[in-house]
Computed example of a mutant assay.
Amino acid sequence: MRVERIVANLTVETIETAVEEHRTVLGWSVLMDHGWIVTLGDGEGHQLNVMTRDASAPVNPDVSIFVDDVHEALRRANRAGAEIVHPLTEEPWGVTRFFYRDSGGRVINVGMHT
């Protein structure tokens, strides 16, 4: 299994305000907008997610890690005894993902594009 991308997720109250703030300060463009989550980034692969409330999970993740084999990542998480807080799910927006809580209480979204 290979990690392909890591993106921080910021939970915000008003997505439009957060998007405008980070666009102005960082000079980034909107790369994806699902209404509840917006990915901002530049042409060099740097990205940041701002989100209000996750569309299908019970909690918002602190970070999203995209891998080339989400099934292997889930096997590893289970072997490690990690608490799975959102089961492996094929989302309608083209991502298969699960969430686990790490020992520090952070929620990690592990996914891959399907």
Rank of each mutant, 00 (worst) to 15 (best):
V107H: 02
V3N: 00
V67R: 00
L40F: 09
T96A: 07
T11V: 14
D33V: 12
T11M: 02
D102P: 08
I6A: 14
A73S: 12
V95A: 04
I84D: 06
G104A: 11
R76C: 03
R97E: 12
T17L: 09
D68V: 10
F66C: 00
E90D: 15
I37G: 06
L48Y: 08
S56G: 13
G94V: 11
A8C: 13
E13A: 11
L74G: 06
V110W: 04
S56N: 11
T39Y: 06
T52F: 08
D69E: 05
R97A: 08
V107S: 02
R106S: 15
F99G: 03
H22Y: 15
F98H: 05
G35P: 10
M32V: 15
I15C: 11
G41N: 12
Q47E: 15
H86E: 04
D54A: 09
M112C: 09
A57S: 08
L74Y: 08
G27Q: 07
V7Y: 03
V38I: 11
A57W: 01
T89G: 04
N49P: 07
V107Y: 01
R101T: 11
P87S: 02
G43S: 12
G45S: 09
A77P: 06
G45Y: 07
H46T: 15
V3Q: 01
G41E: 14
I65Q: 03
A57K: 01
N9T: 15
G43F: 08
R23Y: 10
E13P: 09
R101V: 10
A80W: 02
G105A: 04
V85E: 03
E44N: 13
T17F: 11
P61A: 07
G81A: 01
S29T: 15
T96P: 02
R5E: 14
G105Y: 04
P61M: 00
N60F: 02
E90C: 01
H71C: 00
F98I: 06
M51Q: 08
L88K: 00
A18G: 14
G27T: 11
T14P: 00
V38F: 08
V107I: 13
V59H: 03
T11L: 02
A18D: 12
T17P: 01
D62I: 00
E13I: 10
F99E: 06
T17S: 13
T39P: 01
N78M: 06
G35E: 12
D69R: 00
T114Y: 03
V30S: 12
L88T: 11
L48N: 13
I108D: 02
R97L: 05
R97M: 02
V12E: 04
N109H: 11
P87Y: 03
V85H: 05
I6Q: 07
V59W: 03
P61N: 06
R23H: 11
M32E: 15
H113M: 06
N109P: 10
V95D: 12
G104S: 12
N60G: 07
G27S: 07
I37P: 02
R106P: 00
V19Q: 11
A80G: 09
S56K: 05
V59F: 08
H22Q: 09
M32F: 15
V85M: 03
P58D: 08
P58T: 10
T96N: 00
R76W: 04
D62V: 03
M32S: 14
T89F: 03
N9W: 03
A55P: 09
P87M: 00
F99Q: 04
T39C: 12
L10Q: 10
G43Y: 04
V67L: 00
H71K: 01
G27Y: 03
H71F: 06
